[in-house]
Design a protein around this nucleic acid. Structure first.
Lengths: 165, 165
DNA sequence: GTTTGTGCAAAATGTTTGCATGCCT
DNA sequence: AGGCATGCAAACATTTTGCACAAAC
């Protein structure tokens, strides 16, 4: 939340990207770092899609093309610095991977707003299922869909979302 | 697996669709029943995308348009007879909803083969998170990714898959 | 007979690709 | 200097939309 922490995390991300580009023999273009920075500048709980990211950078007087945004984001996902989400009926959404502990998502059926949560018990399920099915599970995706019972959603006319994944 | 069971399930699905169309004042078109039947004819563990479904029906001498397939499938998802999956980087995939109990998926990182599992503890997490975030959670999606520790995967060269959803 | 649902094709949306230019090494 | 990465626009794939006709009520 505080600036210093985010700066520190961004620096760490840049170092990892440096290393990755070196290892892979890829070029250190300013665009790749710019996309990384833009994503790591996102407020907590916020995710961004390619088009928004593209427009945001353009509005910030940064010249970049859509194709490069797509390419750079793919690269950042490949090296583990950015996480890609495929929520139901939405464009791919991205968020920084280093910033927080792994969290899962609750999507509101009505307004589609996304909240994040962390429940340790998922790890127990993981262990149990991994043992039972003979798999070394190293990654999971958990999404809940529900109707707000506290907050009043603005656009309640939105259709209920179906299951995903 | 046995024919009688599948027929019985299809009949049950048709009845539910009947009721739904009545309740909503929608028309009982042959296309809607045909799409339902086609999806319920899928072998266990198999999912189908819109284009394949469209071509399949066309090849079976059934005249239908893409638009109608899209419309009918959406309707079937809305009334809970069909489940829609948005697996990472793939088109939407559909499967019958009545056939089996709700199951979650374990995807092998290497061969991408999918195993199904059911762990009751997910319901506890759901309750806990719903209470804590103020949401009446009615749906979830849980996908694990892991490396087989028992079975030998054939295509081990496949890239590790990222997170989904 | 009305009106909704369908078929078709065109449009919209999201993403990828091809090629000429520019910039990293 | 050489070659990879970029910018741009066209191509592509998937889904949505608009309109005339058909079929359900």
């Amino acid at each position: 939340m505080s600036e210093p922490v985010k700066k520190e995390i961004l620096q760490r991300a840049k170092n990892i990207l440096d290393e990755y580009l070196n290892d892979q023999g890829l070029r250190k273009t300013s665009e790749r770092y710019a996309v990384l920075e833009e994503i790591y500048r996102l407020p907590q709980d916020e995710h961004i899609d390619v088009e928004s990211l593209f427009l945001k950078m353009r509005n910030n007087e940064y010249t970049i093309s859509r194709a490069t945004v797509y390419n750079s984001i793919d690269l950042l996902v490949d090296c583990g610095l950015v996480v890609k989400h495929n929520f139901k009926d939405k464009n791919a959404l991205y968020e920084p991977a280093l910033t927080y502990e792994h969290h899962d998502h609750l999507v509101c059926n009505s307004c589609l707003k996304i909240k994040e949560f962390l429940d340790p018990d998922i790890e127990n399920i993981k262990k149990r299922v991994g043992k039972s099915l003979g798999s070394a599970i190293n990654l999971h995706s958990l999404v809940f869909y529900g109707d707000c019972t506290i907050t009043n959603c603005e656009n309640l006319e939105r259709k209920k979302v179906g299951s995903e994944a």
